[in-house]
């Protein structure tokens, strides 16, 4: 991600491994194999100073703002602490202008949050505070795990717009994890689709959205219930199947059991990933 800043969306249903992937990126889990390179450096082989650098560069916003903050601590102390540990600004007087600036960026200001605990905020405001905290160190990469799924519809859009502003005005790239495909399209530049822990398709948002290649991506896109009254006629009802648990352990393609285009090879051998038309897809359908 060294090109212009981008919003990279990772989409998957519950249990598809998207949160585990984020934890790995944030160094909260250690992988059994493989490496994660950030600016050419292996993030699991950083020294003490390297970890501090990595924390400054990569910051996170989590799903439930009420769980990200300690309920008996004042919310503004988190901002002062971040300034102290990541930017070496120990004196709160010096930190005030920087903190106020990031709060204004997300549509709040220091006056409004001073001395308050989480109970005095609405979900939308609190999520803004946690975004402000994350961008305090001007990270080059912001990782967001379903940051709007706990918010009400009327507040959701403005938080999403804040992420777009972070990309455009601060020039940070964002990895945005969600299960909601409509918001994914609204916010994202690129998309990766996970299914049962496997990346099935990846590419620019517009291409994947208009002509999905992998059968799973197709099925996902066809199942979105849009807030549009005309979907009544448009949507085809689906039959539910009862295979869930066995899929993680299945050899071959994990989607084979549900796939309408299944071939004999699918359930025995894992499909390789191939590049077609600016994107990557893992499916036997496209292997000649």
């Amino acid at each position: 991600m060294s090109e212009p800043p981008k919003i990279f969306v990772i989409v998957g249903e519950t249990g598809s491994g998207k949160s585990t992937l984020l934890k790995l990126i944030l160094r909260m889990l250690i992988p059994d194999g493989g490496t994660i390179l950030y600016k050419g450096r292996d993030i699991f082989k950083l020294n003490r100073e390297g970890v501090r650098w990595y924390r400054r560069e990569v910051q996170a916003v989590f799903q439930d703002p009420y769980e990200s903050f300690n309920p008996i601590r004042r919310v503004d102390t988190y901002l002062y602490d971040t300034a102290k540990f990541l930017l070496n600004i120990g004196k709160s007087i010096e930190a005030i202008p920087i903190i106020d600036e990031v709060l204004r960026f997300v549509g709040l200001d220091l006056e409004r949050i001073k001395g308050k605990s989480i109970k005095e905020f609405s979900g939308g405001e609190l999520q803004r505070v946690s975004i402000a905290r994350a961008i305090l160190s001007r990270p080059r990469l912001l990782v967001a795990d379903e940051p709007v799924s706990m918010l009400d519809a009327s507040l959701r859009v403005s938080v999403l717009n804040t992420f777009k502003e972070i990309r455009d005005k601060l020039g940070s790239s964002i990895i945005y994890v969600t299960h909601d495909l409509s918001t994914a399209y609204y916010i994202g530049d690129e998309i990766a689709v996970l299914y049962r822990g496997v990346l099935v398709e990846k590419g620019p948002m517009d291409v994947v959205y208009s002509e999905p290649l992998h059968p799973y991506t197709k099925m996902l896109l066809d199942s979105i219930l849009e807030p549009d009254i005309r979907i009544k006629e448009r949507i085809k009802p689906v039959k539910l199947s009862s295979i869930e648990i066995s899929e993680f352990l299945a050899p071959g393609c994990k989607f084979a059991n549900r796939c309408p285009y299944v071939k004999p090879i699918c359930s025995s051998k894992e499909p390789p990933s191939i590049d077609i038309d600016r994107r990557t897809v893992s499916c036997w359908l496209y292997i000649k």
């Binding site: 609405s122 979900g123 939308g124 405001e125 009400d152 519809a153 009327s154 507040l155 959701r156 859009v157 403005s158 938080v159 999403l160 717009n161 777009k164 495909l181 409509s182 918001t183 399209y185 609204y186 959205y209 896109l221 979105i224 849009e226 807030p227 549009d228």
Partner: peptide
């Protein structure tokens, strides 16, 4: 009106406005 306008539909990219304030 505002609620319906703020909803994101499939395949929409134009900037939307949320409802100011909270319930």
């Amino acid at each position: 009106k505002l609620l319906i306008e703020s909803l994101i539909k499939k395949g929409e990219k134009s900037i939307k406005k949320g409802i100011l304030g909270s319930p």
